[in-house]
Structures are given as C-alpha cells and as structure tokens.
Design a binder for these strands. Structure first.
Lengths: 214, 214
DNA sequence: CTGTCTATCCCCCATTTGGGGGATATTTAG
DNA sequence: CTAAATATCCCCCAAATGGGGGATAGACAG
C-alpha cells in the first residue's frame, strides 16, 4: 500500500508546518502540497495530486467553503477534511453541503488528525461527535413526513392533494377516485382555503416544501 | 456523575447476556433493562428509564425500526443505537430516518460499544465510518441544487419557473419580469416541453422533487 | 336531538391556461 | 456567414380552473 498523499490549504504558516511535520514523521503519509491560500486551488490540487485535502474553513480573501465547491465540481471524489478553530455551525453545514467529507477542530490531537485522514481516505467521514449529531438531526428532519402540520386536511382532501401533486387535472382525479369532477372541485376549494393558497401550483409547492404528505 | 443506564432489545439471549456483562463490569454503566422483543417497547422503556437504548435492527415478529419510530414519538430525545449483524444499507437508512442516533455492527469490539454509548449519551452520533460517509453523501445530494440536470432550461426559463413555483399566475410573472404575458406564456410552453410535463402543478412538483433550481 | 364535519354532487360564469399557429431581433455556435 | 438558440411579442380558441352560490346524506360529538 502506497502512502496517503496530503495537501493542505491554510493561511497560517506555523500550522501548515506542524501538519507537514506531523505527516512526514508518520509512516504511511506523505505531504503532497502546502498552500497559504486557495486562489489557484484547482491548479494546486492538479499538480500536487493529493489523496486527501485538508482545508482551513476560515481564510482571509477567498474562503475555504467556496474552494471546496470548486474542488468538488472538478474532482468529484477527492476527500476533503475541513479544519476550523471554532465549532461554527453555519460554516460547518455549508462546508458539508459544498462537499467536504470530514470536519475537525484544529485543536484536535495529532493522533485524531492522523486517524481522520486514514478514515477519510478509506471511505469514511470523520467528524466530531457534536457535528455528527447535528448532521443526523438535520437528516432526520428532512426525511420525516409531516409532524402534525397538516393544516387540518381531511383524509379525502389528502387523497386529492396527492393527485394534484402528481400533476393530475380535476377530471383525471375524479376518475382516479371514482367521484364526480364537482366533488373533486369542492375538495380542491377546501384544500386551497385550508392551505391559504389560491392555485394548484402553489398548493403543490407548499405540500412539497413542508412535506405535508407522507 | 451518575451511571449511564442502558436498556437493550435483542431476541438473542446470549447476546443480551454478553452486553449485560460488558456494561455491568465497567464503571459508569448500569443495565436498566433487557428485553427479547419490542412488543411492549414503550412500557419497557417507561419502566426501565434508560439513558441509552440499544436496539437490534433485525428481530423476528416486530422489527426494530418500527420500534424506533414509536420510541421517537414518545421520547423525543432518548438516544437509540441500532445494532445489526450486517451492513445493510436500506435498514440503516430507515433506522436513521426513524430517529436512531447511532449505528453499530454487532461484531464491534466491546470497547467500541462502550465508547459509542458514552458518545451518544454525551450528544454524539456514533456510527461506523462507512455509514457516516453514506449519510454525508445523502445529505449533500439533498442539499445541493441541480448537478447538470436542468433539462437544458435557459436562464430566463429558470426565472419563469422560479415564479411558477411561487404559485404566481402568468400575468403576475409578466409584471415581475417586466415583459408581456405572451412572452411568459412562450417561456412556460418551452419549460413544459423541456420538462415533459403538461401543467404548472406538474412542473412545480418536478422542480421541487428534483431540486432543479438553486 | 342538534349541530358540526365530511364527502358527495349540482349550477353559473369570468378568468386563466395551454396548445396551435407565427414573427422579429440578438446572441451564440459552427 | 449561416444556422441554431434565445428572448421578445402577437392572435385564435377550446378547455380547464377557480370563485361564488347551494344541496344532501352520513358520521360523530356534545
């Protein structure tokens, strides 16, 4: 097994040097590159050909999150670990969405860093427990149907709404549900009134955005 | 600091006993309950009052995922760690969506189990690296706009589509964009044709479901 | 029993939508 | 330069939508 090649982007020279020292004195790792900014991040990565990128989240001038986005577009599978001094929720989430696979505090122990790099290059996603929990919570929220927030829609109204979401016309819905078009129309009117919307498109948008249906 | 109380649900008696032994012989832990099935999971948890629940994902009769859902509804903050013999993607995802906070293989080392319980009760989300990665990937997909999948919509068409998603009528869109209603209509026609849909509601559904707009 | 909620149906009718034609100007690509 | 996209606008017209009104029957609660 060949060494894991690491490229780091961080504006702090001291920190870059400690990292370089850390990985060069450990077997199985090799520094590939070492840059103070992300102005030419794509080229830097192309030339240094790292297996793992370490990216400072807070850099003056161009910020690390934007750099992650760029890298993700160009190198879709390159593992990136974000480094930050503080536990800043917002930025961490933005990084994750931008495509970073891991997230660590700079204050982490050298051993944790080493483990994280190993883990990410083996297909894992190293992160601090508190971040992991936040990601999970967010994930759950996104994937659960409605809590109790159905605006008091009746079962039948939900049936109709489900068909509306599929793009069906009143007539098609009437056929699907074996009732007259007029009945569907009444349900639709009531749905609009309960959801406080005034047309099908808006109802569909609200339904999907708020995950009103299971 | 008081002990961390643990309740386990697993149909395998041997396994339950090993777990009990493991936690009883380690300082800082205490077995609260020990059940072979989840038939009365709510009552079991109410009575044993655990800080952490260990739940086998594959149990005969009633399955562990459904049990997690029930628990999550009743005890919204109780940390649950899923245990499984194999790395079954589907079930793991279902568990996560159901509200489990952690996920481990039964073949994990005793030490890992202990760490996981500590971590989850401290607000973390212990899971194997490969699961962490999958969660992250899924998370990213859900939170990124469209890759290249915009069906060849032009910029202007995206503008119009964005207004449609807001539930605006053709006339309103025309005013928003300072063009005539006819222009909007043409754009809408082209959008329908590019998205292969035939009405506003369907276009909105497709747009939101596939996150076609940033 | 009475009232409310729900699902079902009906009518009228103005407005909107969507499908079918075109047309022109500008920009982009080959 | 020529062709393809793109953005803008126009007309016709059938069909659908949405807003208003009202009605009946069953279920369920107080």
């Amino acid at each position: 097994m060949s060494d894991i090649r690491i490229t780091i982007f961080d504006d702090n020279k001291r920190f870059r040097e400690s990292i370089a020292l850390l990985f060069e004195t450990n077997h199985g790792f090799e520094m590939a590159g070492n840059f103070p900014d992300v102005l030419t991040v794509i080229e830097d990565v192309e030339e240094s050909k790292p297996d793992v990128v370490l990216m400072d989240i807070d850099m003056p001038s161009v910020n690390g999150i934007a750099a992650v986005k760029k890298l993700r577009e160009k190198f879709s599978k390159l593992p990136i670990i974000m480094l930050t001094s503080f536990d800043e929720d917002d930025k961490v989430f933005q990084s994750i969405c931008a495509g970073a696979m891991g997230y660590l505090l700079k204050s982490a122990q050298p051993n944790d860093l080493i483990d994280a790099v190993r883990e990410v290059s083996a297909g894992g996603a190293p992160m601090t427990p508190s971040i992991a929990r936040k990601v999970m919570m967010h994930f759950q929220q996104q994937n659960t149907p409605a809590p109790e927030n159905d605006y008091g829609l009746s079962d039948r109204e939900k049936d109709v709404l489900a068909e509306l979401v599929k793009g069906k016309s009143l007539k098609m819905i009437a056929d699907e549900l074996f009732v007259s078009r007029e009945t569907v129309k009444t349900h639709v009117k009531n749905i609009y009134s309960k959801l406080h919307v005034s047309c099908a498109a808006e109802a569909v948008a609200k339904t999907l955005n708020q995950k009103l249906l299971g």
